[in-house]
C-alpha cells in the first residue's frame, strides 16, 4: 500500500506555438494513501499547474490514451504503480519518443494510425453473412488470443528504432500485430493480399527482432512473435 509522500517530477514541457525549444520542469506533488497509480499523481499535478497537458480517459488500461515515456521506458500512466518508483529520485516524464509533440506529453499519432490503417484492420469476407454469425472452432479462436487485445497505445511502435527511422514506411509492431490478427483469422478471405501487402523490405522486414516492443507492451502482448509467424507464412507460401 502506498503511503502519503511527496513525489518529485521532471516533466517535459513544450508548446510549439510559443516555446523555442522543450524544457524539463521540476515540480513536486503531495500524494496520499489512496493514490496508487502514476495517473493519480498526474491528475493532482494538473490541479496544481493546470497548463500541463497530457491525454487520459478510462484510467484502467483499456483506452490506451495515457501512454508516456516514464523514466526512459514507455508505459501507461494508469497501470504504473507509484510504489514502483524509488524514493528520493525524480520521476522523469517525457512524451512517447519519435512522434511529433503537439504539446507537453501529447504526441501527434497520425503516422501511427496511418500505418495501422494500411494493413486493413477489419475482417474481409465476401461471402453473404450467415443467418447468425461466422463460426470458428475453439482451436481457431485460440489463435487470436494475444493478438486482439491490443489497445493501440503506441508504446511498442514508439520504442522501436526501426519505427523511429522509417515511420512512413515501416508498419511498426502494433500494425504488424494487428495484421497477423487478421491473417490468422479463419473467417478472413484476404490472407494472400495481406501477405502481398506486407512483403516489402520496409513494411515488414525493417523489424530486426530487437524485441523492444515485447519489453514495453503494457498488455503483455508479443508483436515479435506475430511478426515471426507472418515471415513463416511467407516462407511457406513461397517454397
Amino acid at each position: 500500500m502506498t503511503t502519503a509522500r511527496t513525489l518529485q517530477f521532471k516533466i517535459y514541457r513544450y508548446d510549439p506555438d510559443t516555446d523555442q525549444k522543450p524544457t524539463m520542469q521540476d515540480i513536486s506533488v503531495e500524494i496520499d494513501a489512496t493514490d496508487r497509480k502514476l495517473l493519480d499523481a498526474l491528475v493532482k499535478l494538473k490541479a496544481k499547474d493546470d497548463a500541463i497537458a497530457f491525454r487520459r480517459s478510462c484510467r484502467e488500461g483499456v483506452c490506451g490514451s495515457d501512454a508516456l515515456n516514464i523514466n526512459g521506458r514507455n508505459g501507461l500512466a494508469c497501470l504504473t504503480d507509484i510504489a514502483s518508483f524509488p524514493e528520493g529520485k525524480p520521476i522523469v516524464l517525457r512524451p512517447l519518443p519519435g512522434l511529433p509533440v503537439i504539446r507537453d506529453l501529447i504526441v501527434d499519432m497520425t503516422q501511427f494510425f496511418k500505418q495501422y490503417h494500411s494493413i486493413k484492420p477489419y475482417l474481409i469476407n465476401n461471402d453473404p453473412p450467415p443467418e447468425r454469425e461466422r463460426l470458428q472452432s475453439p482451436e481457431e479462436r485460440e489463435e487470436l488470443n494475444g493478438l486482439y487485445e491490443c489497445i493501440l497505445c503506441a508504446c511498442c511502435s514508439t520504442s522501436c528504432p526501426s519505427f523511429w527511422w522509417n515511420p512512413d514506411k515501416f508498419v511498426g509492431p502494433a500494425g504488424l500485430l494487428a495484421a497477423y490478427r487478421f491473417i490468422a483469422d479463419t473467417r478472413d478471405q484476404a490472407t494472400n493480399e495481406r501477405l502481398d501487402n506486407l512483403e516489402d523490405p520496409y513494411r515488414l522486414f525493417r523489424c530486426h527482432t530487437i524485441m523492444n516492443c515485447v519489453d514495453v507492451c503494457p498488455k503483455g502482448l508479443n508483436p515479435t512473435k506475430a511478426i515471426g509467424k507472418i515471415k513463416d507464412m511467407m516462407v511457406q507460401r513461397s517454397i
Binding site: 496511418k114 494500411s118 502481398d196 501487402n197 506486407l198 512483403e199 516489402d200 523490405p201 520496409y202 513494411r203 515488414l204 522486414f205 515471415k231 511467407m234 516462407v235 513461397s238
Partner: peptide, 8 residues
C-alpha cells in the same frame, strides 16, 4: 502503401 513484393 503496398508491398514491393520482395524482401522475403
Amino acid at each position: 502503401i503496398v508491398g514491393a513484393h520482395y524482401g522475403l
